[in-house]
Design a protein around this nucleic acid. Structure first.
Length: 631
RNA sequence: GCCGACGUAGCUCAGUGGUAGAGCAACGCUUUCGUAAAGCGUAGGUCGGUGGUUCGAAUCCACUCGUCGGCUCCA
């Protein structure tokens, strides 16, 4: 007998068992003393066993990883010449990269899928085996798996583990499912090119993305959710909301804001401006183009040139600004500063243009011309902690004001192994990184440490919001910049009478107006809260007889600053209501004979329905209150 | 930029070598109506662009522009 702890309960079991002898049906794998293992692992004395199911993140990862092996197995059967690259589980599903002679088509995906079905129906056991590295090298050389050879060469261990199902074998740390029949339902979603090892100088591989679940039902639910998410895509919703347009003749990634979108920008801008002025920021404005010399000083000319647009004026080279920083640096540099003036906080809603590569522009989320809610804080090292803290407060306050509940926070730090890669001294980096981490800890904000992910000029905190498909997009960023103070020679005179280099904290709260609004559309599915809605109220007449009254009501609403649209046409009231429901206008006022006679208005709330009749002043009070609450 | 898919009326889509279609939207007339679509009619497209194959091209081919999904990059 051996003693084990199973799901927290101490018990005795026979000797010589394997995990699968004890596992319940839903168990995909297990953790023994905290380490994930497959169900073929032996049950050892004093093992603490916890089952991993599809409900566990680790369980899903194993499930999807095995699914990617299954797919690779099917691909090798159908395309024996395909060479294997890597095939990991991802946040939702899995992929596998292959080097093939001809790209996969959608038809190929169908074929691969049906081959996968054959393999799952055979319930092939998935076996872990250990090989001496040299033997596996020989095998891979013999079978022409060049990419696997490259991966293998980087492994320093004498023995390596492989996983085997029928004739398919893959270099893999595992663990994996017990047999292929556990993968109940799957779908291959798309093919895409992907560079080998993510390096665009290396060959492009064919990547197949897929998703899988234990049951058919779960897969169908997932695919339906995916369809629904597509309906909340800001580009689709925009057709009804009419906020912006992008035209081929104007250029990709260049947004034209329509009247309703421009009003939305103004509401956001007004909010932003008020909050910044409250917090001691000063607004500045910098020009859209500047001489190449400025960008040489800032370093952009050398390091960011491929993303910049240029023009020339009277034989002088000018650049269209890709960033607002240099302008703000010039403003600071132009006069001598005392420590008594610091911190100085320059903020600008500055529109910049960047030559994004053609394959990456996407709706409002990735564009070539965009307005950053930029600010640069010039302060002493001692002031940095409270400045960073205040910025983080502003970010969290703003994100909350716009209704977001879930965010992802990342702290990007340098790679201490390569200090030569970075601007600024190790002392500055140490101090700044400690400040950022401490502020996050003090506020109790959960964050992910990203070692080696910092830009060369400084460490940063990024806050990300999610789009309709769950993809994270950056909103807020708080970055130290050690590069620009050096390049522009930004100093202040301290108490000791000596000149010291000023600290620059570069930050954006919304990120960019374009991306932020794109995210907002998706977050609210177009159903904006009253304070943000481009039109807040639609005034609708039942018949021509109430036209005059309608005009009076609309005028009064507009006079009190409520964004109002009218429809006095001869359409039936049902048709008008449908129209403004589709346009997602938060409130409608229905005016017929009755309202004219009683001097009232009948209120209808978007997506709710008839709310009854009120006096107009009551309705205005109600709307004003709701606008103030930003709900 | 690279890989793949796609591009027909303002929108959603049908049309696979033989005279460009539907619904919605627009416009006109009729209708004056009470909480998600009134009726009739009119107009609207060199089928993303250029070139080629063909007696004939929305349809086949090449190039190009754009969009979408990825890679890479990033606010």
């Amino acid at each position: 007998m051996v003693k084990i702890t199973l799901d927290g309960v101490l018990q005795d079991v026979e000797e010589g068992l394997r995990l699968r002898d004890l596992a319940p049906d839903e168990a995909l794998a297990a953790q023994i003393n905290g380490t994930a293992v497959g169900l073929s692992a032996p049950v050892e004395d004093y093992a603490e066993i916890r089952w991993l199911t599809f409900a566990d993140e680790k369980g899903r990862e194993i499930f999807w990883h095995s699914s990617s092996h299954l797919m690779a197995h099917a691909v090798k059967k159908l395309f024996p010449r395909a060479r294997l690259a890597i095939g990991p589980a991802i946040d939702e599903g899995f992929y596998y990269d292959f080097e093939v002679d001809a790209p996969f088509s959608d038809k190929d995906l169908e074929k691969i899928e049906s081959e996968m079905h054959k393999l799952t129906s055979q319930a092939l056991p998935i076996r872990r085996r250990i090989f001496p590295k040299a033997k596996l090298e020989h095998y891979y050389r013999f079978s022409g798996e060049d990419l696997k050879l490259e991966l293998l060469a980087e492994i320093t261990d004498e023995d390596v583990s492989v996983y085997e199902q029928d004739e398919f074998l893959d270099l893999c740390r595992g663990p994996h499912l017990d047999d292929t029949s556990k993968i109940g339902a799957f779908k291959l979603l798309s093919v895409a090119g992907a560079y080998w090892r993510g390096d665009e100088n290396r060959q492009m591989l064919q990547r197949i993305y897929g998703i899988s679940f234990p049951s058919r039902q779960e897969l169908e639910d997932y695919l339906r959710r995916l369809e629904e998410a597509k309906a909340s895509d800001h580009r689709i919703l925009n057709r009804k909301l009419e906020l912006f347009d992008i035209y081929e003749d104007v250029g990709p990634g260049l947004v034209l804001w329509k009247p309703k979108g421009t009003i939305l920008r103004k509401v956001i801008t007004d909010f932003w401006t008020t909050e910044h002025l409250k917090r001691g920021y000063q607004l500045v404005t910098s020009p859209h183009i500047a001489r190449a010399e400025l960008w040489k000083i800032s370093g952009h000319y050398d390091y960011y040139k491929e993303n910049m647009f240029f023009t020339s004026i009277e034989d002088h080279e000018y650049a269209i600004k890709p960033m607002n920083c240099p302008g703000h640096m010039m403003l600071y540099q132009s006069t001598k500063h005392s420590y008594r003036e610091l911190p100085i906080r320059y903020a600008e809603l500055g529109t910049v243009y960047r030559n994004e590569r053609s394959g990456v522009v996407q709706g409002l989320l990735r564009v070539r011309g965009f307005t950053i809610d930029d600010a640069h804080i010039f302060c002493t090292p001692e002031q940095a902690p409270s400045e960073v803290s205040d910025v983080l407060d502003l970010c969290l306050f703003t994100i909350d004001a716009f209704g977001y509940k879930e965010i992802k926070v990342e702290l990007s730090l340098w790679d201490p192994q390569k200090p030569e890669k970075y601007a600024g001294t190790p002392e500055k980096w140490g101090h700044a990184q400690q400040v950022l981490e401490q502020v996050l800890a003090d506020k109790g904000v959960p964050f992910k440490r990203m070692d080696g992910e910092a830009a060369f000029y400084g460490p940063k905190i990024d806050i990300k919001l999610l789009d309709a498909l769950g993809r994270p997009w950056q909103a807020s960023t708080i970055q130290f910049d050690f590069n620009l103070p050096e390049r522009f020679g930004l100093i202040y005179v301290a108490e000791d009478g000596a000149e010291h280099e000023v600290r620059v904290i570069h930050r954006a709260v919304l990120g960019s107006m374009e991306r932020f609004i794109g995210g907002l559309i998706e977050f609210y599915m177009g159903n904006f809260p009253l304070w943000l809605a481009p039109y807040q109220v639609a005034v609708l007449t039942v018949t021509d007889a109430s036209k005059e009254y309608g005009a009076e009501v609309a005028t009064e609403l507009i006079d009190t600053g409520i964004r109002t649209v009218t429809d006095f046409s001869s359409e039936k009231i049902g048709a008008k209501i449908r129209k403004f429901e589709n346009e997602k206008v938060p409130y409608m006022l229905v005016l017929g004979e009755r309202e004219v006679k009683e001097g009232t208005v009948t209120l209808r709330r978007h997506r709710v329905g008839d709310m009854g009749s009120f006096s107009l002043p009551d309705v205005i009070r109600r709307l004003k209150k709701e606008i103030k609450q930003r709900r």
